[in-house]
């Protein structure tokens, strides 16, 4: 075997390893989703979506759980996205490199790896007790916002880095200020990457259970939140609660609730992808 043949063989072997690595994740996900849909799809009907929790599996519904999740996601979005993007813009566009900013950067990267339950404890002390918000939707949203801030900041910075510096130079050259350059040129160009980060972050927030339990999200709530100060429960808590019941019927309920949670996540991602594509088309230098 010549050297060239050897290299080609290595090349094709590596290709198959790559395909294999990719498919493991996808196949597992497909099996999981297939299994869940098989178990739970027939359980989903109108009354499942509009009923209160119950001890009888066939009467139980997820009205308070999905509406709680929706409230939490909306408020988390409102709190985390402006702060996250602003922080990212500051660090990438305005920031001068010195010791303080290096410390900031290291901390933000580290925060992304902190276990979520720690954020729960932080939220319990700062938002629930010190700020006197109680175990409300707002306290839960602030806690989750903290949790996803590092993801949004890091994604924003990466997206801004990818914008060619010639764009900035051209803008400055035409007499634009830093603010005008950032707002009219750099941010629109980076919007695709930023939105991807926001999607990932919000999807993570939808699925979180541990920090919300610590903050005081409840398991049985017979009413939907009417405002940001109301108590709440969320879908992952309802699912966790049903999965740990001995009766098989509750496992079916859990599967049905998982389908709804997946549907919510996919819908939100879909909306974000739509906007990303729409905005990206507008950019033509």
């Amino acid at each position: 075997m010549t050297n060239g043949e050897k290299n080609r063989l290595k090349d094709s072997i590596f290709k198959y390893i790559g395909v294999f690595a990719c498919s493991i994740g996808l196949i597992l996900l497909a099996i999981f989703i297939g299994n869940i849909i098989y178990d739970g799809f027939n359980r989903i009907d109108w009354s499942f979506l509009t009923s209160l929790p119950s001890r009888k599996a066939e009467k139980a519904g997820i009205l308070t759980a999905w509406s709680g999740s929706l409230w939490i996601v909306i408020f988390t979005f409102i709190i985390a996205v402006p702060i996250g993007i602003s922080a990212g813009v500051y660090l990438e566009e305005y920031n001068r490199k010195n010791k303080l900013t290096r410390l900031l950067e290291i901390n933000i990267s580290n925060l992304a790896g902190v276990p979520s339950i720690i954020y729960g404890l932080l939220g319990l002390e700062i938002f629930v007790r010190l700020s006197n918000l109680g175990s409300s939707v707002l306290a839960g949203s602030f806690t989750l916002a903290l949790l996803i801030l590092p993801i949004i900041i890091v994604a924003t910075r990466e997206a801004l880095k990818a914008v060619p510096s010639s764009i900035r130079a051209a803008s400055f050259g035409l007499g634009a200020t830093k603010w005008q350059t950032t707002w009219y040129q750099v941010l629109p160009a980076a919007s695709g990457g930023i939105l991807t980060g926001v999607i990932l972050a919000i999807s993570r927030a939808v699925g979180e259970t541990a920090p919300l339990i610590v903050v005081g999200a409840l398991a049985y709530v017979p009413f939907t939140p009417k405002g940001p100060m109301d108590e709440f429960t969320v879908l992952p808590i309802q699912i966790f609660n049903w999965v740990s019941r001995p009766q098989h019927e509750f496992a079916i309920n859990a599967a049905a609730a998982i389908i709804i949670l997946l549907a919510i996540t996919f819908t939100m991602n879909g909306i974000a992808v739509y906007f990303r594509n729409k905005w990206q088309k507008k950019i033509n230098w």
Partner: peptide, 17 residues
């Protein structure tokens, strides 16, 4: 759940900490 039937205006919430 059953108490809600006799006293619908009392808001009982249960957590699992």
């Amino acid at each position: 759940e059953e108490f809600r039937v006799v006293a619908p205006n009392v808001r009982v919430t249960v957590g699992v900490s």
